[in-house]
């Protein structure tokens, strides 16, 4: 990423490049009264949901994310799945950056700095586990919507600029705590079940 950011700075000499109006359709155009970026996001979410839940590749991605060793043992094409997942992520990042650049109307070499963290925040907020194997497209969409809604709501409520970071951080903290509690409950339940199974296997005490 740093290599490409550097290359971007080198090519543009850190100056803005104005975008011709005809290239901005993807960012500011509308179709039947709906802004293009919204349609694009909906299409990507639907396509992603279908791929993640209804195709072999999606199942493979979940399996590899959950446990690589088990996936290898099961004979899954782990290498191809990982390369495929990263390629897809790259493609979607390109779509996002094109949309964002078109919205802004200029190519700014510094645009999108720190976005990787925002993306991770949205994904974690949507219930995806950072350790892999758990997550859903719907949750991610909800996470992104919550983040944006909080930001917009703060501007609308006329909050002090200092409050923005407090609220954003608070939302993330709450989400992580809630997710932690959920996993703990699940783990607790699994632990109990495991113990019961073991006890049954041992047979009733004499």
């Amino acid at each position: 990423m740093q290599v490409f950011r550097g290359a971007g700075g080198h090519i543009t000499a850190q100056q803005n490049i104005d975008l011709p109006a005809k290239l901005r359709g993807i960012g500011i155009g509308t179709l039947l009264g709906v802004p293009t970026p919204v349609l694009l996001a909906a299409a990507v979410a639907l396509g992603g949901g279908f791929m993640f839940n209804r195709t072999t590749f999606g199942r493979y991605v979940q399996a590899v994310g959950s446990n690589v060793d088990a996936a290898v043992d099961a004979g899954l094409p782990v290498r191809r799945v990982i390369v495929g997942a990263y390629t897809l992520a790259g493609l979607l990042a390109a779509v996002a950056s094109l949309t964002q650049t078109a919205r802004l109307g200029t190519v700014q070499p510094s645009i999108g700095q720190g976005y990787e963290l925002t993306v991770i925040t949205a994904v974690v907020l949507g219930g995806t586990s950072l350790f892999g194997g758990r997550g859903s497209i719907g949750g991610t969409v909800a996470g992104a919507l919550i983040l944006t809604a909080v930001q917009t709501g703060l501007v609308f409520s006329g909050a002090s600029p200092y409050v923005f970071d407090i609220v954003r951080g608070g939302v993330l903290l709450a989400a992580v705590l809630a997710a932690g509690a959920r996993w703990r409950n699940l783990a607790h339940g699994a632990g109990l079940a495991g113990r019961r199974v073991r006890r049954e296997a041992d047979g009733p005490p004499a």
Partner: peptide, 24 residues
């Protein structure tokens, strides 16, 4: 001053913040 919007020197935040403030 009817609205103060933090941007964190980030062009995207400035775009979104300005759009929201103009709407409000």
């Amino acid at each position: 001053i009817v609205s103060q919007v933090p941007t964190d020197w980030n062009p995207t935040q400035a775009l979104d913040g300005t759009s929201n403030a103009l709407q409000k």
